[in-house]
Amino acid sequence: MIVIIIIGMSLVTMIPRIIPAFVVEKLQFKPWVNRWLGAIPYAALGALIFPGILWVVPNEPIIGIIGGLVAIILASLGLNVVFAVIGAITTVFLLTM
């Protein structure tokens, strides 16, 4: 039964991921569409960060916010992403001790 679930999940995940690989070749986008698609990564990052970050620790949104602020500060200093990640993990760990 679980194998059937896995196959079904795999298909509905795979198909939307690969259709653009075939489609893009055949289409020539207008400049405004290209700008839209060019903005998608930043929009996606925004939507992936918030409000999800509030729920890192259940019922304690402030901890997620503080962890996020630490990541913002470390990244603003020009440090590699790895340090933002480690800094945020450490912050949340200390706050939940």
Binding site: Y42, G46, L48, V56, I72, V85, G87
Partner: peptide, 29 residues
């Protein structure tokens, strides 16, 4: 928090280069 911090770490340098990118992200949030 690791993946959220990674997303932030990816976004911040782009925002520093072009503030409008930050506006797009905030709108989307």
């Amino acid at each position: 928090i690791a993946l959220y911090a990674m997303f932030i770490g990816l976004l911040v340098p782009s925002v520093k280069k072009n503030l409008k990118v930050g506006l797009i992200a905030i709108l989307s949030m």
